[in-house]
Amino acid sequence: MKKNIFKEFTKGLFKENPILIIMLGLCSCLAVSTDVSNALGMSLGFSFVLIISELLVSIFRKIIPNEVRIPIFLIFIAVPTTIVDLVMKAYFPSLSKSMGVFIPLIVVNCIVLGRIEAFSYKKNFVENLMDSLGMALGYSWVIIVLSIIREIFGKGTFLGIRVMPEVYQPMSILTSPPGGFFLIAVFIALLNGILKRRS
């Protein structure tokens, strides 16, 4: 039993990684990973929404009528998303500005609705807690690693501070869309390769 719960947590990291394996939530992943600070902000915002909405669904799943479950899920997602949006605007205005429309778009991030529909509605509180933590972490590590690569090599900086020597010419293609698409391709290929070799 205990081992099972642990598995709910670890599956999100690699085996069922929401971005690299299930291929969901790509929009925000590529858009905010141009800067480490954006990626950190997005990970926090996304994790908050995912964890809160999964837990809400698991708490109320017994009293949610089946026919109207989708509108209720939407409320459970939209409310925390709005909270994240307002709080970011109020306390981290520059971060909120550079992420722009992608914060409100957490509401249609396919990972959240997908997890709720496929998992939360059927499982209990503890399993949901583990699952949401795992998925949030799985999402976060991918975008943070991606953003570290893109910021250091694409801009020569880390969290806005120059780390590469002055002679280094930043490869700005990495921060532009083609670089993002290519990097995610390499990531998926690598993870696929590693998982295949293991099994």
Partner: peptide, 17 residues
């Protein structure tokens, strides 16, 4: 290893250029 999604994203990168 590029079969499936990776090659799709590589193509997307080239179109994006």
């Amino acid at each position: 290893f590029f079969k499936g999604y990776p090659i799709v994203f590589t193509s997307m990168a080239l179109i994006a250029i």
